[in-house]
Structures are given as structure tokens and as C-alpha cells.
């Protein structure tokens, strides 16, 4: 019961804030609602017993990436953009296509329901000390992808510095 309350609360919070992210006019408010959506997702991770992922989501997404976003938003003055049109000229076409994609996804889940055990509740947690298991998987089986990811981060860091520097 408590499980369900937690899940539907966070799901509703995430969905509502996601809608507000794409509809608000003020970028700072968009960023705040994105933070709310990300934290709600973190709550859903916790409800799924993914504690480590929950904290990664809070530290990296909410605490790291979003601070970067807010920082950049404040560096760039936004008084002008408040009074400009918020949607591009072909927004109706984009909306239509996005809804088509969404309908496809719903169809996929609905069809998959008969093949995979989607309908039943997920089995009770089999991953008990989830942090240890994630660590072992990450540094055992997925060692090479992990190293590649660290190189990706290095490349991104150099790229961001070069890009944002005034004179190269």
C-alpha cells in the first residue's frame, strides 16, 4: 500500500513537472521544474530499491548537471527571450509527430504485455545489497565500458573548456 502511494505520488510529480518544463516561459522556472522531475525520478528509483542509483541521480543529475544549467542560465541574460515567441513555426507538425511516436510506444508496451510478464507486479527484490552488486557488475563485467565512459568524460571536459574559452 505504502509502496503504491510512494510510486504514484512520485510518478504524478514527475509527469506534472515534465509538462511544466516544456511549457513554462521563464527558463529559470523550467530549470526548477526539471530539478523536481529529476528528484521525483530519484524517488522512483528508491521505491525500486535502487539505492545507489538514487544517490547517483541526486548527486550527479540534480546536484551537478542542474547546477551547471542554472549557472549558465544566469550567465546569459534572459530578459529578451521572455518576450519572444516560445514555440517555433512548425510546432504543430512537431507535436503531431511526437504524439505519433508516443502512440507507437504505448502500442509497443501494450503488445509486449502479452509476451513478457509486464502485467504482474515485479518480483520482490532479488538484489539486496544493491550497492555491492552494482559495484561488482560495473567493475567486473563492464570494466571496458567504464573506462570508455571515463575517456568520454575527459573528452567532454576538454571540449567544453575549448568551446567556452574566449580566445583559444
Amino acid at each position: 500500500m505504502l509502496d503504491q502511494i510512494v510510486f504514484y505520488f512520485f510518478a504524478a510529480l514527475a509527469a506534472i513537472s515534465a509538462v511544466l518544463v516544456v511549457t513554462r516561459r521563464n527558463i529559470v522556472q523550467c530549470a526548477i521544474f526539471l530539478i523536481t522531475a529529476l528528484l521525483a525520478t530519484a524517488g522512483i528509483f528508491l521505491q525500486l530499491h535502487a539505492e545507489f542509483l538514487f544517490i547517483v541521480q541526486v548527486i550527479l543529475y540534480a546536484g551537478g548537471i542542474m547546477v551547471l544549467f542554472v549557472f549558465v542560465i544566469m550567465l546569459i541574460n534572459l530578459d529578451i527571450s521572455l518576450h519572444q515567441a516560445q514555440y517555433n513555426r512548425q510546432w504543430w507538425l512537431g507535436l503531431l509527430l511526437a504524439l505519433v511516436v508516443g502512440a507507437h510506444l504505448i502500442l509497443a508496451v501494450a503488445v509486449g504485455r502479452s509476451v513478457l510478464p509486464f502485467g504482474e507486479p515485479a518480483p520482490a527484490t532479488m538484489l539486496e545489497p544493491s550497492t555491492q552488486i552494482v559495484g561488482r557488475t560495473l567493475f567486473g563485467e563492464y570494466m571496458l565500458p567504464f573506462e570508455i565512459a571515463s575517456i568520454l568524460l575527459l573528452v567532454a571536459m576538454i571540449g567544453a573548456v575549448v568551446m567556452a574559452k574566449k580566445k583559444v
Binding site: 514527475a14 509527469a15 515534465a18 522512483i44 511526437a98 504524439l99
Partner: peptide, 21 residues
Amino acid sequence: LSLGLFTIGIIGVVTRRNVII
């Protein structure tokens, strides 16, 4: 829930003009 958020994200990408959004 996931596909709902994903679709909302797509809508944001294809309709908004502001790059940060």
C-alpha cells in the same frame, strides 16, 4: 510513466525555440 516522460521530452525538443530548454 517512462514513455510519458519520453514523449513530453520529444515534444519539448521539437517545439521549443530556446536552446537551453
